[in-house]
Simulated assay, not measured.
Amino acid sequence: MCCSGFLKIMMFIFNGAIFLAGAAILGVGVWVKVDSGSLLGVLDQIDDAPDELAQLTNIGYLLIGVGAVLLVIGFLGCCGAIRESRCMLLTFFCIVLIIFIAEVAGAVVLFVFQDLANELIEKVEVQVVRSIREKYGEDESLTNVWNHTMEELRCCGFKNYTDFDSSPYQIDNGNVYPPICCDQSDGPCSETLAAEFMGSIPGCFTKLVQLLEENAVIVAAVALGIAFVEIAAMVVSMILYCKIGNKS
């Protein structure tokens, strides 16, 4: 009896963590879809983008789906423990096992296909820079997205200020660059001044990579924590499943 009570408490703890993780991921997914000025908005403005790149625009829906599934998993685990339902516990175990296998497979694919990722980045660079030079300063939607992105990340262009060469903005404003490229909110930004600030105002892709690298330890810790919770939850659910079976 004491052992069963301990197992139930452990199920509540593990599934509470899964439920909270699902709520957090769901919230991030909703934010990504609602925030039209996010960096992902740039992808919507690229013509003839690679199919792999186009799929990134659906990341918000993916996060919403994953968050919803985790919420259901947390609910199944808690209810299965409270009601001592073998069916719910078995369903919980199967779903978590499938997700765990998918996570491992995804990690292996990312590791094996790093070269393909580099090729995709090169394609993205060409497409993004072309869209800037053809539309920035003329297409209001694309211009607003880039302005918002550069202000939020404190960056200039995809690679650097030269991405704006021959753009409608530069042509219409006397061969100048966006003010952010010279670390200012307004006023002309000449090529000489933009070159001086290139070290302190990097390209947006470089800045994004820097942010990811700075938070890599946190991301890895969170991933390992989720994997531990999933494994522990599966073990506890199976032990509780067997004990309930022995009682009956």
Rank of each mutant, 00 (worst) to 15 (best):
residue 172 D to M: 08
residue 146 W to D: 02
residue 105 A to S: 15
residue 16 G to S: 05
residue 185 S to I: 11
residue 223 A to K: 01
residue 67 G to I: 04
residue 204 C to T: 04
residue 230 E to I: 12
residue 76 L to F: 11
residue 155 C to V: 04
residue 231 I to T: 07
residue 243 K to L: 11
residue 156 C to Q: 09
residue 10 M to N: 11
residue 236 V to Q: 03
residue 205 F to Q: 10
residue 55 Q to E: 15
residue 66 V to K: 02
residue 176 V to G: 01
residue 143 T to F: 03
residue 41 G to L: 09
residue 147 N to I: 01
residue 22 G to A: 08
residue 3 C to E: 13
residue 193 L to E: 15
residue 145 V to R: 13
residue 113 F to W: 14
residue 35 D to R: 07
residue 146 W to K: 02
residue 82 I to R: 08
residue 164 F to H: 12
residue 175 N to G: 03
residue 16 G to N: 05
residue 100 F to N: 09
residue 145 V to A: 10
residue 40 L to I: 14
residue 127 Q to S: 15
residue 124 V to Q: 15
residue 114 Q to H: 13
residue 34 V to S: 15
residue 23 A to V: 08
residue 239 I to N: 10
residue 2 C to H: 03
residue 233 A to V: 02
residue 138 E to Y: 11
residue 119 E to S: 15
residue 5 G to K: 14
residue 229 V to H: 04
residue 23 A to P: 00
residue 167 S to E: 12
residue 241 Y to H: 11
residue 9 I to Q: 06
residue 144 N to I: 01
residue 232 A to W: 07
residue 165 D to A: 08
residue 246 N to D: 15
residue 210 Q to Y: 07
residue 164 F to N: 10
residue 194 A to D: 12
residue 8 K to S: 04
residue 238 M to G: 01
residue 81 A to R: 04
residue 65 G to Q: 05
residue 59 I to E: 07
residue 150 M to L: 02
residue 52 E to C: 00
residue 55 Q to W: 08
residue 71 L to H: 01
residue 152 E to M: 13
residue 102 A to Q: 06
residue 14 F to M: 09
residue 143 T to Y: 07
residue 1 M to A: 14
residue 172 D to L: 10
residue 188 P to I: 08
residue 121 I to L: 14
residue 65 G to H: 06
residue 230 E to A: 12
residue 136 Y to N: 07
residue 203 G to T: 10
residue 141 S to L: 14
residue 191 E to Y: 06
residue 105 A to M: 10
residue 26 L to F: 14
residue 202 P to R: 09
residue 203 G to A: 01
residue 7 L to N: 05
residue 12 F to L: 12
residue 37 G to L: 11
residue 122 E to H: 09
residue 139 D to S: 00
residue 32 V to T: 14
residue 22 G to R: 03
residue 178 P to Y: 07
residue 15 N to M: 06
residue 126 V to D: 14
residue 107 A to T: 05
residue 82 I to E: 02
residue 133 R to W: 03
residue 86 R to C: 06
residue 189 C to L: 09
residue 239 I to D: 11
residue 81 A to D: 13
residue 12 F to V: 11
residue 233 A to H: 00
residue 60 G to H: 03
residue 121 I to Y: 06
residue 85 S to V: 04
residue 1 M to T: 04
residue 95 I to M: 06
residue 162 T to L: 08
residue 33 K to G: 00
residue 125 E to V: 05
residue 204 C to L: 07
residue 151 E to H: 01
residue 170 Q to L: 01
residue 179 P to R: 05
residue 147 N to H: 07
residue 221 A to K: 02
residue 230 E to K: 03
residue 63 L to R: 02
residue 12 F to D: 10
residue 192 T to N: 11
residue 40 L to C: 09
residue 129 V to L: 07
residue 191 E to T: 03
residue 49 A to I: 14
residue 37 G to K: 08
residue 78 C to V: 03
residue 13 I to K: 06
residue 231 I to R: 02
residue 87 C to W: 12
residue 45 Q to D: 10
residue 102 A to C: 12
residue 186 D to G: 00
residue 240 L to Y: 01
residue 208 L to V: 09
residue 83 R to L: 13
residue 151 E to G: 04
residue 55 Q to M: 13
residue 149 T to W: 11
residue 17 A to Y: 06
